[in-house]
């Protein structure tokens, strides 16, 4: 049996360094990320700018999750958390009508394994005059609600998810928040 040469040892150390580098990127960064809290308090007495000129007043007791909140000029997302319940709003440029926007969201929901749309869809309206469509969905161990609005060249998608008991407790406050959605057209340059 031959002995280990200096070259082989150097090669092994180099390769282990390589693996350590990869591990740092694939596992170290996510681990560091998990050590820092993602939630921040958010004022619930004034509108929050989501992006694309769309605002919403957050529900009482909500905290914002900065990992899924990305406000930008032409689009944006915000994730509010009310305990274990997720209240997510996404604003994206869109050139179709309301029915097309609803179909698009339904496709995305049912495209996730184990998720399906439930019940019938209802029309909803916000205090600012936005007309939309609302429905329900269910997934493994979770229930959910979705609502879609189309305004000023954007689609506004609202998804709420959580365990049934938690949803029952928080949905009134979330519904009240959804009704505060407003869209102000972006100023033209």
């Amino acid at each position: 049996m031959g002995s280990v040469t200096r070259r082989q040892l150097t090669n092994l150390l180099g390769a282990l360094g390589l693996v350590a580098g990869l591990g740092g990127l694939a596992y170290g960064l996510p681990a560091l990320n998990h050590t820092l809290p993602a939630e921040r308090p958010v004022p619930t007495d004034r509108p929050y700018e989501i992006g694309g000129g769309v605002t919403v007043v957050p529900p009482a007791g909500a905290r914002i999750d900065v990992t899924e909140t990305r406000p930008a000029e032409a689009s944006g997302t915000v994730l509010f958390r009310l305990g274990p319940v997720r209240y997510f709003i996404s604003v994206q440029p869109f050139d179709g009508d309301l029915q097309a926007a609803v179909r698009r969201l339904r496709h995305r929901i049912t495209g996730t394994s184990g998720y399906q749309v439930t019940g019938t869809e209802l029309t909803v309206a916000t205090a600012g005059g936005l007309a939309g469509i609302q429905g329900g969905y269910s997934g493994p161990g979770r229930g959910g609600r979705y609502a879609v609005f189309v305004a000023d060249g954007h689609t506004i998608e609202v998804t709420v998810s959580g365990a049934d008991l938690d949803l029952g407790r928080t949905l009134p406050a979330i519904d009240a928040s959804t009704r505060t959605l407003r869209s102000a057209p972006e100023p033209t340059r």
């Binding site: 990869l22 694939a26 996510p30 990320n33 820092l36 809290p37 900065v66 909140t69």
Partner: peptide, 28 residues
């Protein structure tokens, strides 16, 4: 390999930018 490592790594760093900076900074 580079793609496998970059998917979780980039997402985590993007989150860290949002946490240590702000969601606006992460968006931009």
């Amino acid at each position: 390999v580079a793609t496998t490592v970059s998917i979780p790594g980039s997402a985590a760093l993007d989150d860290l930018i949002a946490k240590l900076g702000s969601p606006h900074l992460a968006a931009d």
